[in-house]
Design a protein around this nucleic acid. Structure first.
Lengths: 172, 172
DNA sequence: ATGATATGTCAGTCTTGTTGACATATCTCA
DNA sequence: TGAGATATGTCAACAAGACTGACATATCAT
């Protein structure tokens, strides 16, 4: 166990002072960065009558063709009722299509339509612009370091799954 | 203008291919990391009958004693009606107190009570644990690099304000 | 004194999450 | 083949947290 972790669990000296002061800078910067990061897509989504929930669904379906409902629920960590509401709208408006599974006919395999892929790409490109601007004029190893930091911030019990989803071999 | 930015605005060659593929990894890791990052406090907040909105208000008031309503609204980017609902509860339950401004008696200067500071610290400590774990076994320069990345992700028009708020000389 | 500013509040709406209950189709396995 | 498990869909009610619009009050600034 690294010192930094152990130090948080028991006082380093006999005093009742805190082991380490909270990392207020990273906590607050994370809040502000996320606040602005999601604000770009919001403006576009408004034009389509969609919200952030639609964005998340469309994004992961577009990126993972053939995704099932169960897998999507596990990614988003919401209830099937919540998912169904926004998914139904995306299907009705022809951004996503739902095909009955071939191996298991109970499953619904989700695919983005051409229109869906186009919107997903538009939104991802917006966010990529912001990321690219942030990384420009930073050390070349910055991207890899940020990527590893974010991955390590995720619950360890889920990080293998996320790693596979984000970097993993194309199969869903 | 850096090449990386210009490249996103016009195709590098005469072809109609995209300049750069979207940075799906950083986009998705940001989503998953934020999802888990806010989930730790949620469990504690539940016990107090509070939600994430209360957490954000309590956090910034605790960190910036004497914060005004207007400044808080600017940080959170929500309407005063939304803020008022949660702020009222925090005041009623004695986590925050509102004092009439001395220089300008129209203002309300917000302060966390002892109880409020205690809860804010408990929540910040939880998040600090996650951050510390993520940074442990990473390069020593990782923290600074992540910090600079997050700051650069923020809208440039707001980054000076955020920098002052997060790192800045104690005054509010 | 007058207009601008900081805050508070009422009322209604929207999005996105929740729980609980139940229906249907399909698969798996004894 | 039949029973139970599984994947999905749907109805209804509810809650948090955001929004708009309108209006009130106190205080400041000129």
């Amino acid at each position: 166990m690294p010192d930094a972790i152990r130090a948080l669990k028991s006082p380093p000296s006999g005093k009742d002072t805190l082991a380490e002061p909270p990392t207020y800078d990273l906590i607050e910067l994370f809040f502000f960065a996320y606040r602005d990061f999601v604000s770009d897509p919001d403006r576009i989504l408004d034009e389509y009558g969609f919200g952030r929930a639609h964005h998340r669904v469309l994004h992961f379906v577009s990126r993972n063709p053939g995704l099932t409902i169960a897998e999507l629920l596990d990614i988003l960590r919401i209830t099937k009722q919540s998912l169904n509401r926004v998914l139904k709208e995306l299907i009705e408006k022809n951004f996503i299509e739902s095909r009955t599974g071939t191996a298991d006919r109970r499953q619904r395999l989700l695919h983005a339509t051409a229109k869906g892929h186009e919107l997903a790409l538009k939104l991802a490109t917006l966010q990529t612009c912001r990321i690219t601007r942030a990384l420009s004029e930073m050390e070349p190893e910055a991207k890899d370091m940020v990527s590893r930091y974010l991955l390590r911030l995720i619950d360890p019990s889920d990080s293998a799954h996320v790693k596979h989803l984000v970097f993993g071999s194309e199969e869903t």
